[in-house]
């Protein structure tokens, strides 16, 4: 008797085999599956990238100045988190990806908040053209896209004890190679009095020139206080704290004689290393303009009534 061929239990017919093309492309399939799950798990992480278009409404009140060429203002950046060389920063920022970002508003607030960037943008983006006067005696004119700082602070509703607003930048030694140097007390910190922060001119910028901020200009959001020296306009903010005491600020801690807490632009008060009476027009060789008190924003003068500006520089 001939033994009948009977397939073993694990036998599968050819028709049941995985299609050859699928088999050869299995890696692509796995990758797609992986991507699908990550984007499912983290739906809120799709955020705007530096340079993306940013729609904002022109604020006609702040449109008198002719902006400096974008090429200049985005390639000349005091951002010590990357480098102390202003011309190096842009290159160091190329290829850097920002982590998911939230901003915490905390301290002496009746309603402490942690907000996504889109939630702050939803307060209403507008474009304002401001002159930025660097303490190094040069200035540039930038069209910023953002929201008035007062709107955000009002959301948190400061208590009656709140007198100052402290700002802190992201601390991340991997992202910011400059933070590996021990000379500076990282993270970058700045501060304003509450009335200064609530002033109409104080601005939180998400973009410039109608686009999301380039990283070298302080992405994803930065402060712009146009009547103060540029270093007060802290970049890449992660936390805003309402306090009852004057907060410590990075430059004031490093060189208290050179960088005061107020740091209002004032042609009459020298920097210990140079006169502040004039400023170089960025992009030019020797062309300078006389520096104006409060950088040409006299409407802030009432904030300092009765304050000795020479002592409180």
């Amino acid at each position: 008797m001939m033994k009948q061929f009977s397939p073993p239990s694990w036998f599968l017919p050819d028709s049941a085999a995985t299609d050859e093309s699928l088999y050869f492309n299995r890696r692509a399939l796995l990758k797609a599956a992986g991507l699908a799950t990550t984007s499912l798990a983290l739906p809120s992480l799709s955020f705007a990238q530096p340079g993306d278009p940013l729609a904002s409404k022109t604020n006609p009140k702040f449109q008198q100045l002719e902006p400096t060429a974008e090429k200049l203002t985005t390639s000349y950046n005091n951002f010590y988190e990357f480098s102390t060389q202003k011309q190096e920063v842009k290159e160091l920022c190329a290829g850097v990806t920002l982590p998911p970002w939230q901003v915490e508003i905390t301290g002496l607030a009746q309603k402490p908040l942690t907000l996504d960037l889109d939630q702050i943008k939803a307060l209403g983006l507008e474009q304002r053209v401001y002159r930025l006067r660097c303490v190094e005696a040069w200035s540039m004119i930038v069209p910023w896209d953002g929201v008035p700082l007062a709107k955000l602070i009002q959301l948190a509703n400061p208590t009656s004890k709140a007198k100052y607003v402290a700002f802190v930048s992201l601390e991340d030694k991997k992202l910011f190679p400059g933070q590996r140097t021990s000379y500076y007390p990282w993270p970058y910190a700045e501060g304003l009095t509450l009335p200064e922060a609530m002033h109409e001119l104080s601005f939180l910028a998400f973009g410039c020139y109608g686009k999301e901020l380039p990283i070298q200009n302080g992405a994803p959001l930065r402060l712009v206080v146009p009547w103060k020296y540029g270093f007060k306009s802290i970049k890449s903010i992660v936390r805003i704290t309402l306090t009852d005491h004057q907060p410590a600020t990075l430059w004031n801690q490093i060189q208290p004689k050179e960088y005061g807490f107020y740091a209002n632009v004032n042609p009459a008060i020298d920097h210990p290393r140079w006169s502040q009476s004039s400023e170089r027009v960025l992009g030019s060789w020797f062309q300078r303009r006389p520096t104006e008190l409060f950088n040409g924003y006299p409407e802030v003068a009432p904030l300092y009534r009765g304050l000795d500006l020479k002592h409180n520089f």
């Binding site: 210990p272 290393r273 006169s275 009476s277 004039s278 170089r280 060789w285 020797f286 062309q287 300078r288």
Partner: peptide, 19 residues
């Protein structure tokens, strides 16, 4: 050159320890 062509306060800047 920057001091002179830029109309800067040369005498004042000359007196700074940095300079």
């Amino acid at each position: 050159l920057d001091q002179i062509l830029g109309g800067q306060e040369l005498a004042k800047n000359l007196s700074k320890p940095f300079i």
